[in-house]
Design a protein around this nucleic acid. Structure first.
Lengths: 213, 213
DNA sequence: AGTTTCTGTGAACGATGTTCACGAAGCCAG
DNA sequence: CTGGCTTCGTGAACATCGTTCACAGAAACT
C-alpha cells in the first residue's frame, strides 16, 4: 500500500465531509465511508474511535476553515485600506454567510451534532476554535470609538456573533431559499447598524438581566 | 379498552416528549414508546406515519407552548400596567430562556430535527407557529416611538427573535452551565438595549446588504 | 529464522426503523 | 343469529445500522 496512515485518515475525513454535505447526518455511514475509501469497516474504527469521532474531526476542519475565512475577509479589507467598523463587521457576517452556503450539509450537521445529547460531554475544543472568531470581532470593536472595557468587548463580540448566527440559521430554516437570502442580508445589515449606533451612544450596560415579574 | 384512539395518541406524544427531554433524539425509539404506552410497535405506526411524524407532533406541541408562554408574559406585564418597550422585550426574552430551560432535551431535539436533512421538505407549519411570536414582538415594537413602517417592523421583529435565539442556543452549547446562564442574561440585556437605542436614532436601514469586496 | 507487535479484514452481534400477514373485534345486511 | 366486510391491534420478520473481535498477514525486532 502506498498510503500512509495519516493520509488515509485525511481521505476518510474528506469522504465523510462530502457525505455530510450531501445527505446530512443520516448519510454518514461507516460502510459507505469504508467502501468509498477502499478500506474495510474495521479500518475506519482503527483510524477513529467512533463515527462520532469521524464527525468530530470533520467539525474541527470546518471550524478551522471558518476561522480562516473570517481572518481572510479581514485581511482582504486591510489590503484595501478599509478600516470602517461597520464595513468590517458586515464583511465578517458576509464571510459567515458564504461559509454556510458553501457547506449546506456539513455545517447544519455540525450544529445538529452538538444537540444530539442534552448534556454535552466535551465541547471544550469547539469553544477554543470559536474563541479566535470572537477575538477577531472584539478586535474590530476595539477600533471603534465605543467606550467598552475588555470584558464588555468580549461580551459584545459574543453577542454579535450569536445574533448573526441566529439570523443565518433561522433564515435558512425558512421555506423559500432565495427570497430569504435577501432577508438574511437585510437582517444582518439592520443588526450591525443598530449595534453600532446603539453602542455609539456610550454607556455600558451592566444590568441584572431580564426578569419578568 | 377504555382508551380512545385520540387519547392514546396524546399519551404517545407525552411519552415521546418525555423521552426526548431525557435523552435527546437518540432516545426516541419506537419500541420504548410502545412499551411505555402499553401498546405494540405496530400501533405506534398506526397512529403516526413515522417516528419523524411523532417527533413532528411533539414539536408542534412545543411551539404551541412557546407561543402561550410569550403571550402569557405579555399579559402578565399588561396586568401590572407595564408598557415600557424595553421591559416587555426583556420579559419576552426571559420567557424564552425559561422555556428553553424547562425543555432541556426536547427543545434541542426540535432544533436538531430541522437540521437532520440539508433540504427541508415541509417546514411550513413551523413557520406558521413562529409567526405568532414575531407578531407579538412586532406589536411591542409598534408601541415604541421608532419610525418603522410595517415591513421594517416585521424584519426588526425577526431579527430580534433570531438574535435572542442565537444567544440562547450558543450560550447553552457552551461548557459551564451556571456561569453561562449569567452571560446569556448579560448578552440579552445588551442586545435589547442596543437595539432600542439604535432604533431610537430613527432612520430606516434599507441597505444593500453585506458585501465584502 | 523465530518471535513479537501491529494492522487490515469482514463475518457476526445487537439494536433499531419499518412492514405486513394474521387474527380478533366490531358492524351491518339478510 | 349468521355470514361477510371493515377496522384495528399485534408482533414476528426483514433490512440496515454501529460496533466488535478473532484471525491472518505484514512488519519489525532479536
Amino acid at each position: 500500500m502506498a498510503l500512509d496512515k495519516e493520509e488515509t485518515g485525511e481521505r476518510v475525513l474528506a469522504i465523510a465531509e462530502a457525505l455530510l454535505n450531501e445527505g446530512g447526518m443520516d448519510n454518514l455511514k461507516a460502510r459507505t465511508i469504508a467502501e468509498q475509501a477502499g478500506i474495510s469497516v474495521g479500518s475506519v474504527y482503527n483510524l477513529f474511535s467512533d463515527l462520532d469521532g469521524v464527525h468530530r474531526a470533520v467539525n474541527m476542519r470546518l471550524l478551522d476553515r471558518l476561522g480562516v475565512a473570517g481572518a481572510a475577509a479581514m485581511a482582504d479589507l486591510g489590503r484595501h485600506g478599509i478600516t470602517d467598523v461597520r464595513q468590517r463587521l458586515l464583511a465578517l457576517a458576509a464571510a459567515y454567510v458564504r461559509f454556510v452556503e458553501a457547506h449546506p450539509g456539513s455545517w447544519p450537521a455540525l450544529l445538529a451534532f452538538n444537540r444530539r445529547r442534552p448534556v454535552l460531554t466535551e465541547p471544550d475544543v469547539y469553544e477554543a476554535r470559536l474563541d479566535q472568531l470572537f477575538e477577531i470581532i472584539a478586535s474590530v470593536l476595539a477600533d471603534g470609538d465605543f467606550d467598552l472595557d475588555e470584558d464588555m468587548r468580549r461580551i459584545a463580540a459574543r453577542t454579535l456573533w450569536s445574533s448573526v448566527h441566529g439570523i443565518v440559521t433561522s433564515g435558512y430554516a425558512a421555506r423559500s431559499v432565495r427570497r430569504q437570502a435577501d432577508e438574511i442580508d437585510q437582517q444582518i445589515a439592520l443588526l450591525v447598524n443598530v449595534f453600532i449606533r446603539g453602542l455609539e451612544r456610550g454607556g455600558t450596560f451592566a444590568h441584572s438581566g431580564p426578569t419578568a415579574s
